[in-house]
Structures are given as structure tokens and as C-alpha cells.
Design a protein around this nucleic acid. Structure first.
Lengths: 188, 188
DNA sequence: GACCGCCTTGGGCGTTTGCCCAAATTCACG
DNA sequence: CGTGAATTTGGGCAAACGCCCAAGGCGGTC
């Protein structure tokens, strides 16, 4: 099947981004090297610096794209659920699944860490997290939860913290934490 | 003042550990190199591999020592406070201070991340975190909180998550989150 | 003062890194 | 069947890496 050069280039760029996403989770942000990501994507090492100005640039684009998609899916799922209690159950269940030996949760954590030393990544990740907190707050407020903003901030932080802790202690029953979390929704 | 060789050696070892602690926060786990930590400690590069088998070994010892001391201090402070409400206020206040451009909070996060790829670090860090959760649970249970274990797990995770989020969004008012957190203590 | 054990020095080894680049490849188009 | 623009190749470069090691202090013991 014929294919223009631009189409091939775009496809290669996508393959590099996908390879970077999985490798950030597997090897860590600083463990992703030019040659490693090229091999995983099935291309020559030189391709990386043809499509991206630097390895950091590739990792930044890949991680931000993944996080953007992830919180978009979560927000979408939440609005679909009838009440906040069901939403919390689903949320904690999702966190429970997202731990273990899953690379996605590691990618998020790696991106957090890397963002403290890469200004542009920091700014753009902060935007995404803020948007997620707003989505969460709107969802909570829509169901009559008081202090929706602060509860949303706490909930968002707890989710990220649980991912870290669950990885450290796989026996931690995350889904069982939905009970105490529900208390956050109660009125004064 | 006279000083035996062993005493000098011990002091150098301590200097290396302290230098490693600050550098993990500043440059990240993978950013700490043999020469960097040696320069910060004011010794020749060769000293590092005289006192420690590898750079990873140095970083492991340094980070575990710091975390051990940190959660020890927190536990001690909590038992000193009269009621859980005051404890939570102090806890959230401490988190608020520990963010910003403080390297200590970053060290903890870096250690979490690194532990996923260094088995021995993982095991020993898991022990420390578990012990901290137990301390927290005992403290909560002692004040009549229901589901002390799950609440402690949630609280411990939220603390770590908040440190990450606060770093990303310095305007986040962590201390103000103490309100919603209090709801966790209420009985069913 | 000679000896000994511990610590320290600073250079050197092989490896890996990010990034570069001339040459080769591919495909739409005249 | 060229021509040209985009993409891909694979080797090469300087720099930095972890780790090693022979040589040189340094203080306590005979």
C-alpha cells in the first residue's frame, strides 16, 4: 500500500511516543535512553533526534499525552455514574487495578518527579492536574457535597498517594478504603 | 586534637550520607553521581567506593536513614498532642511547610520511585511505611476512631500525595484541607 | 624511628550517554 | 525515468558514568 513520506513520518513519531510511554514505566524517566526507545519502537537510533529535539522533549510529549488522556477518561467515567458514592467506589476500584505491576501508575509518578526539574513539563502538568481537580470539584458540587474544592484537592492527592503506597505494599486493600473516603462527602 | 583513623573514617562516611540526602532532593535519585556526591562532601571521588560498595548502596542507606528519622519524629510529635483534631492540624501544617522548594519532600518521593527498581530498598522502605501506618492507626484507635487501620492507610497515602501536589501547585492551601480530613475521624 | 592498619588521593579503565551527520532509501510528481 | 523533498540509516564524537587501584598520608603501637 502506497504511503506518503509525511504519513510514514507521523506513524514513526507515534510509535516513538508509545514506546516512550511504556519505557518510562518500565525503566524510569532517567532510564529511557535514545537507543532503548529506538529499539523498542523498531527504528534506528538517529530517528529519535530527527523527530524530537532531545530525549527530554520526547519524554515530555509522551508523558503529558498519556496523563491528558488518562484524566480525560476518568472525568468522562465519573460524569456517567449516577451518584458520588458509586463514583468513589469506581474510583477506588480503578486505583486498586492501576497498581500492582502496572506501568501506567508508575508513569504518572515518574512524571510528577521529573516535573520538578523540567520547567515546561512542570507548567503543563500543573495545568492538567488543576483541570482534573476542577472536574472533580464540579462533580462533587453537583451532588451537593460541601467544600467541593477542598475535598476534590484532597481526593486527587489521596489517589496519587494510594498508587504509590499500593505499589510498595501490594497487600494494601485499596478498594476497602472506599468506606472512610465516603465520610468526606458528608455534610457538617 | 588527635583523632584515630576509624573516627575519621566514620565522620567521612557520615558526611557522604548527608551529602547524598541533600543531593537526592536536588538532582534526583539518578542524578546523584560518584563525583557529585564526593565533591559535595568535600572528599576525593575514590572515597565513595571505599565506604560503600556502590552508589546505589550509598543512596539506599542515606534515603532509608532519612525516612526512618522523619517518620520517627512525626510519630513522636503525634503522641505528644492531646487530641486527634489537633494532631491532624499539626500534620497538615507540617505537610504545608514540607513542600515549596524543600528537598526533604522530594527525597521521600524519589525514594518511593527508586524502590520499585531496587528490591532491597523496596523491602526496607515497605517496612518503614508499614510501621508508620501502624503508629498512625494506634494513635487513631487510641482516640476512639473507627476503622483506625483503613483511615490510617488513607491518611498516610494522602500525606504523600499532598506533598506531590503541593510541589506542583504551590498555591494549594494544604492547611485548609484539615477541615475535610477531620470528617474521616467521625463515627458512622 | 620503624612499623602497621586505616583512610585518602587522583588518575585510569571500559562502557554508555546525548546528539550529530553524510549517505542511503523511499515515494509522489513532472 | 529522473528529480526533489522527506525520512531513515548506522557509525562517530566528546562527555560523563561507575568502579578500580597503585601510591601516598596519617596516627597509634612497639
Amino acid at each position: 500500500m502506497p504511503e506518503t513520506s509525511l504519513e510514514r513520518g507521523r506513524a514513526t513519531r507515534e510509535r516513538l511516543l508509545r514506546a516512550a510511554v511504556t519505557l518510562i514505566g518500565e525503566a524510569g524517566w532517567n532510564g529511557v535512553t535514545t537507543r532503548l526507545v529506538a529499539e523498542r519502537a523498531g527504528v534506528a537510533p538517529g530517528v529519535v533526534h530527527y523527530h524530537f529535539g532531545s530525549v527530554t522533549e520526547l519524554l515530555t510529549a509522551a508523558s503529558l499525552g498519556f496523563v491528558h488522556e488518562l484524566i480525560g477518561q476518568i472525568g468522562e467515567e465519573l460524569t456517567r455514574l449516577p451518584d458520588p458514592e458509586a463514583g468513589l467506589d469506581w474510583l477506588m476500584g480503578a486505583v486498586a487495578v492501576y497498581a500492582g505491576d502496572d506501568p501506567a501508575s508508575l508513569l504518572v509518578a515518574e512524571t510528577y518527579l521529573a516535573s520538578t526539574r523540567i520547567p515546561e513539563l512542570r507548567d503543563r502538568l500543573a495545568e492538567l492536574v488543576l483541570a482534573f481537580r476542577r472536574t472533580l470539584a464540579r462533580w462533587l458540587a453537583g451532588h451537593g457535597v460541601e467544600d467541593a474544592d477542598t475535598v476534590a484537592a484532597l481526593l486527587a492527592a489521596a489517589i496519587d498517594g494510594l498508587v504509590l503506597h499500593h505499589r510498595l505494599d501490594p497487600e494494601l486493600d485499596v478498594a476497602a478504603l472506599a468506606g472512610p473516603v465516603r465520610r468526606l462527602l458528608r455534610k457538617e
